[in-house]
Every structure is written in C-alpha cells, then in structure tokens.
Design a protein around this nucleic acid. Structure first.
Lengths: 253, 253
DNA sequence: CAGTGGTCTAGACCACAGG
DNA sequence: CTGTGGTCTAGACCACTGA
C-alpha cells in the first residue's frame, strides 16, 4: 500500500521545482517579499535558468508570484474576487464606480459582434471602452458594443467621442428595460492594447468574459471584457463572495 | 504560409510569429489539419525552435492549436461551450448525464474546505469524484465535498466507496432543499492527478470553478471543478449559449 | 523503427527600474 | 551605472506515437 518509491519515470524538473518553490512560498515567505533573482535561484537548485523560469511561470500563472522586469520576483497577494454577473438583469454601469469609461466612438464592429447584435456588418454601433480597477490596480479592460436602436434618444450630446460621450451613452442605455443577460468565460491572451492597459506584457493570460444583454427580445448590447488572470478570481452567483482559496493548483503530484 | 521575413521591430519575435501563424490558421488551414513539425516551422521562419514553440504555446493557450507528443500539431476546433451555473438552484447531478461519478469516500477535506462547510478540520465529509465529458472527450474533473449532515439518510448503502456509493450520495443530496449557489472562476494549473484525467500534461492550464451550495442557511456542499482551459468556454446565464467567438485574443497588435 | 512534441542546457543580449 | 526579468539561440536528449 502506501509505500514511497522512486518513480520509474521521474517527473519533469520544472514541475518538481514548482512544487518545492510553492511549498517554500507557504512556509518561508510572506506577501510582498522579494525572492532571490532567477540566476541565483537556478544555481541554488542546480538547474538552467530556463528551467527555473518555467517553474516561476507556472507559479505566476497560478497567481502566487508577481514578476516585474527590472525589479524582481515578489510573492503575490491572494487573488481579488471580482463580481461578474451578480446583480442580474442590470445594465452595465448601473451603480458603478468600479468601471471607468474611457472613450466612445461610433464604428463598425467585428463581424461576429455585428451578427450577434443583429446589425449589418458595416453598420456602425456605439463602442464604449471602459476599464476597471480594484485597490488602485487595473484588473479589466472592456469593449462594449451597443446597437444604436438601444439608445435612441442620443440627441443632446454634442461630443462625438470621449469619456463624456461614453457616460452619456451608458446613461441612455439604462433607460431601457433589460430582460436578461448571459456570459461566457474563456482563457485568452492580452493583445497589445489590452496588455498596456492592464500593465502586463503582450500575451499575458486573461480571462475573457463575453456578456450579451437582452432587451426587447434581442441582443441590445454586447460586452467583451478581459480580466487579468493572474490577479483576478471572477465571482458569479446569487449572493456574496466565495472565499475558498483551495489554491489554484488542484491536486499536486 | 511560405514567408520568411521578420523585420527588426521592437515587437518580440514570438509575438510577431504568433500573429503570423494565427493569420495563417484563419486563411490557409482548416480544423484538424496538421501543421508542419516544429523544426521545419522554425527553420522556415528563421528562428530557434524555442522561439517558435513560444508562439505555438500562445496559440494553444488560446485554443487555436492542439499539440500531442508523438503525433504533431493540429488546428483545434472552436471551443465547446460548457454550461456552468445554469439551472440555478439545482443540486449537482439533477438531470445529468454529463457528469459521471467515479468514486466516493468519507475523508477529512482540506482545511479551507472544512472551514467553508463549517465542519471540524478533522471531521470526515463525503468526497465525490466525478468527471465530465463532451463529444467523448474529457473536459472537467470535479471534487465534491458534502457535509454528512446534508445527507442524513444514508442507511441502505452498504458500499463503502466506489461509483455506486457516489450515485447514492448524490441521490440523497437531491432530497434536500437548495437555497442558492455561488461560483467563482479562476485560472489554475492541472495537478498530476487532474492532468491524467483530462488527458493533459501536468501544469496544463485549467479553469477552476469553485461552487458553494447553500441549504438550511449554511454551506451544504462545495465543489471544486477543473475544466480544460484550452478546449472549454464556460457559460453562465439566464438562458442559452453565447455564441460570440470574437477570438480569445482580444485586440491584436 | 522513425518522427513528433516535451524537457533541458549554457550561454548571449536586450529592455527596463532604480539609485 | 548595476541588477532585474524578458527574449533568443543552437544545440542535446527524452517520451511518446504510430507504422
């Protein structure tokens, strides 16, 4: 039964290293503390720097480490819970200070978005760019597509674009009746534009939340929001937060 | 796809390569098709194999490629939408053929789980292991923790463990009244055990869905499910599917 | 068996942060 | 400037698949 034995096929070094480091993080380091640099760590474990980096990459993906070029590797705080899809049947921006509108233009959206909105492929829609922060740190960037028919009374706005116009469009959108919404979450990587806004490098892992807002029997608006996967835990549900932090790696070797 | 040019832009090579390959996937390849092997591709683009691999890694993370050792790299089908958190206020396994119970034991859970369930840290709970598949492929592995008090009438079961017992526990659980549920989604990496079950290598990216089931004013059960991040799109919401496949990379360079 | 992707090495140089 | 992480190279060998 429970015998410890040498594996006939040893597990990869980077994986073993990840487990060792993860254990060390639990016992010997506290949040915010800086680790030794990669070259020292690699030497200490007797592996090449690339191998050590592969282990650090894993831990960063799991939200346990934070690496910044020119600075160093630090122990990351627990992921922040970010409410997504609570307050069901609420239009975006209803009681919001978390989202900060940045811009709004009238432009033709990607074809897939146009199809979902039921607008023509070359028909311009309101495109709102917003960003979301928590504790002063950026966590999400969003692109909100709103069919013109959903915000009919957009008369008194003279600004053709900019944050002021974004706020006006959102205000107008909230006058409509929202019937439902549905979301999907998938893994993606930050494009150059989002990466800059999220203070990450291009290709950084993000959780892409696509939400469709239903009103008047059709899709009235559509949001594509990208959340930093390293720092965020997205919460859905009927009530408050889910506080289990069982750790993002599920069952170790 | 026969190009060889890589201008000296400040953009990292692997990122540029990712964009080139992604574009090629859209225009010159169809789902299931196998790409040239990594050594050939690297030579064709005039980069080291490691650099080429970094680009492929990105595309695999975004669900556009599938790589299998000993076989090759193929163009992945679009991600499958997996319903999570629909049919609100339903116990797990209510009308399920998607989840397949594998085992059930009575054991002390991790400390964080015991705290959430409100049981003592050394108090054993029912621990059900299930797996979920779609189109014959495994997509998720779950660990379900159920407080013994939530399934009081577990008398007629003689099996101390196994799939039969798992089914019995789930059946008993559904006799209770579920008041609500809340979920959280975060990025993690598959442990050795999950990796095998999901047919991936250890460290593979997974979406970890933690769900708390509320009944009788407290947490009656708790689920930690890990979904393959490369093949799954998790859907939440009031109604059907969200079909936008805007592509997991949000806005390219 | 031959061919594939997965792991690993030991270097090099670059981009950036901070003093 | 020094020190950090980020990128990149050109190899090597291993583990696995399928013929």
């Amino acid at each position: 039964m429970g015998t410890t034995q040498l594996e006939p096929v040893p597990e990869p070094k980077y994986w073993h290293l990840r487990n060792l480091l993860g254990q060390a993080l639990d016992t010997e380091f506290s949040v915010g503390e800086v680790l030794p640099n990669e070259r020292d760590l690699a030497a200490r474990f007797g592996v090449a720097r690339a191998t050590l980096r592969q282990a650090l990459e894993q831990l960063e993906l799991e939200g346990r480490l934070q690496r910044r070029r020119g600075v160093g590797t630090t122990v990351a705080p627990p992921r922040v819970g970010v409410a997504v899809g609570t307050r069901r049947h609420d239009w975006p921006g209803t009681a919001d200070d978390v989202w900060q509108p940045a811009d709004c233009v009238l432009a033709a959206p990607p074809a897939a978005v146009a199809d979902a909105l039921g607008t023509g492929r070359d028909e311009p829609v309101h495109t709102v760019r917003r960003s979301r922060g928590t504790h002063g740190l950026p966590v999400a960037a969003e692109l909100l597509y709103i069919a013109p028919s959903s915000v009919p009374d957009l008369t008194a706005i003279d600004a053709p674009s900019g944050a002021a116009r974004a706020r006006a469009v959102l205000r107008e959108l909230q006058r409509g009746e929202l019937e439902g919404q549905e979301s999907a979450v998938e893994l993606g990587s930050a494009g150059a534009e989002d990466a800059k806004e999220l203070d990450r490098l291009p290709g950084a892992p993000v959780l892409v939340v696509t939400t469709r807002y239903l009103a008047g029997g059709r899709t009235a608006a559509l949001s594509v929001a990208t959340y930093r996967a390293d720092t965020c835990r997205l919460t859905f549900g009927d009530s408050g937060d889910v506080e289990i932090h069982h750790g993002p790696q599920t069952r170790a070797s």
